[in-house]
Nucleic acid binder design. Sequence first.
DNA 1: ATAAAAATTTAGGTTTGTCTAAAAATAAAT
DNA 2: ATTTATTTTTAGACAAACCTAAATTTTTAT
Lengths: 219, 219
Amino acid sequence: MKFTMAEENYIKAVYHLQHGQEVVSTNALSAELQTKPASVTDMLKKLKAKKIISYEPYRGVKLSAEGRKVALGIVRKHRLWEYFLVDKLQFGWDEVHEVAEELEHISSNKLIDKLDEFLGHPKFDPHGDPIPDSKGKIIAQPQEQLSGALLHTPVQITAVGSQSTELLELLKHKGLQMGTRLEVKKVFDFDGSLELRIKNQQVVTVSRELASVLFVKSL
Amino acid sequence: MKFTMAEENYIKAVYHLQHGQEVVSTNALSAELQTKPASVTDMLKKLKAKKIISYEPYRGVKLSAEGRKVALGIVRKHRLWEYFLVDKLQFGWDEVHEVAEELEHISSNKLIDKLDEFLGHPKFDPHGDPIPDSKGKIIAQPQEQLSGALLHTPVQITAVGSQSTELLELLKHKGLQMGTRLEVKKVFDFDGSLELRIKNQQVVTVSRELASVLFVKSL
DNA sequence: ATAAAAATTTAGGTTTGTCTAAAAATAAAT
DNA sequence: ATTTATTTTTAGACAAACCTAAATTTTTAT
């Protein structure tokens, strides 16, 4: 089955918002896609007719098995293109998201499989998110939040929870990126902020909000 | 100024059809774009309002200076992507056109300039067509038609006049491709067909129609 | 120079994806 | 358990890009 760009964007949005949630609300989609709730309702009807989602009025929406497959295909394209942009074209990891939003809609499967091969079948994109393989298989990462890390224990940043330019700008400013090694020096209970030491050098403070979207693994 | 995909396709079509011609007709665009003449008229009005073309009802259309710049930008993208597909992803030169038709609409200028650099600033695409540089400068190739080549004079294929799958399929079948060396052995006045010897080996016959869309340079 | 043919434009519709405003359903609060 | 607030859906419109059918202009042929 073929999909328009708009349909693909809705499918991808449902996929992302479904993480953890049982169903996704109309308003959540409206916010994610920057459209009005009424427009979301229209599209949900259309996707339901195509059996991509299951949806009952007022009851929220979730992807069907077929829909999940489609979503994983789009996510695969998005992340492979991001890897390409950073690894081959020397883009900064914080400036690839928007371009990949366009590239992910190029339809050729042959293209994406050849790209995958050219890149050496990478397993993670530049933000640390796993790349689904050509069959839609995706490595489930045991995402450990920085906010839950032990004190004085060296960890490494493996993923960030969003690709908003605002977040990426903040990380850049603080000198944090994928693979950065650090340890938590202090936790302030008042506001949940953390004091980190990066590579045994600079000390930076991160807010509770920031710490909750940074994922790490112990070293 | 920004353009929709449909607008870009019209601009590119006018550019291609304008080659040699003073103005381009509505019907020519309709045929090229596989749409009805009435649809073409609608779009011409729109592009005229945007000052991309000059157009008077019933009088045909041509690109404005601005329109030419836009067209060259699209052509540049198309040909760089084709080069990428063949050179990096190992696509056959006859299977890249359709994918490039999609990729040429990706908007990021940074992307295309980085891609250009990554590819080593190629001057010609896999079909032998020149690639405009980032300023819109394009090498005018002195396109010598095979149908006008001298007998028994070694020449090399430098370009093909169209990217239709039909043409590319035929070339593949005959064992002809970019860079193929050959010489014309005989010209049949009856139907304008040519007998060629490829690399001093096989002998193939090509029709007048085919010979007129193959471009060569003397060796 | 007219009549016939071809090309082009106009007029009026359709589909996709969006919107606003109003109605209906669900959830929250007193 | 009502009332109030929030969420969601319906109804009706709009722009983009296409279509068909009919009218108009230009070109070609007699």
